[in-house]
């Protein structure tokens, strides 16, 4: 059943059909949120809020103004921003990357070392992802980690698929250009070796 059809049923009062939308998007939204928080419990809290908000607002959703997927991702993004806003009200934050800090539990002192699940991994990929603009980073994560096609990324981010493609290619060009000289020499040597 297409999203539009399910939403139609929800809007007629059959809200239990929302379960089908949940089945389809639960993992995607969870991963999306996890990559912004790097903390399982925090991601679960936020995802719960996202789907509850989605369920309670689905009657207001207008399919003519955009896809359900884009709408749900927008709720997820805003919920993450709200979450971090509580943590650091005076900083323009969108996720753990921009904040530069891992997530902490609501209402308690942010314990940087204990609140993150994958600190080592985060440190490793910072060299690639840490310097990117938030949207660029989202596109890379969605494309490479979440294996989403550009059309779906575009829906989620409210952009065109073409601009997402462009953005991704620019990121790759940028990352390649910033590769350390030594790595470039090694790769070049490997390429020569393979060729001959």
């Amino acid at each position: 059943m297409e999203d539009r059809e399910i939403i139609g049923q929800c809007q007629k009062g059959e809200l239990k059909q929302f379960g089908l939308l949940y089945d389809k998007y639960a993992k995607k939204i969870y991963d999306f949120v996890y990559f912004k928080t790097w903390h399982k419990e925090t991601a679960e809290d936020i995802v719960s809020q996202v789907f509850m908000k989605g369920l309670e607002s689905v009657k207001k959703f207008d399919p003519d103004k955009g896809t359900f997927s884009a709408w749900l991702y927008a709720i997820a993004r805003n919920t993450v921003i709200d979450y971090y806003r509580v943590k650091k009200a005076d900083v323009n934050i969108e996720d753990v990357w921009d904040l530069g800090l891992p997530a902490g539990k609501a209402g308690e002192h942010v314990d940087l070392d204990s609140a993150i699940d994958a600190r080592d991994t985060l440190e490793k990929v910072k060299k690639y992802l840490g310097k990117l603009e938030p949207t660029q980073r989202e596109i890379v994560i969605m494309r490479v980690w979440q294996e989403m096609p550009y059309e779906e990324i575009a829906e989620a981010l409210g952009k065109s698929a073409e601009s997402c493609r462009m953005s991704f290619s620019r990121v790759m060009a940028k990352l390649r250009a910033e590769m350390p000289l030594l790595e470039l020499i090694i790769l070049f040597a490997l390429w020569i070796f393979k060729k001959y």
Binding site: F35, W38, A43, A118, K124, V125, Y128, M172
Partner: peptide
């Protein structure tokens, strides 16, 4: 290399 490194560093999201 960049893509492979990114793929290799994809964290387990622990979806439960």
């Amino acid at each position: 290399k960049i893509i492979n490194e990114l793929l290799a560093s994809r964290p387990d999201t622990k979806f439960d």
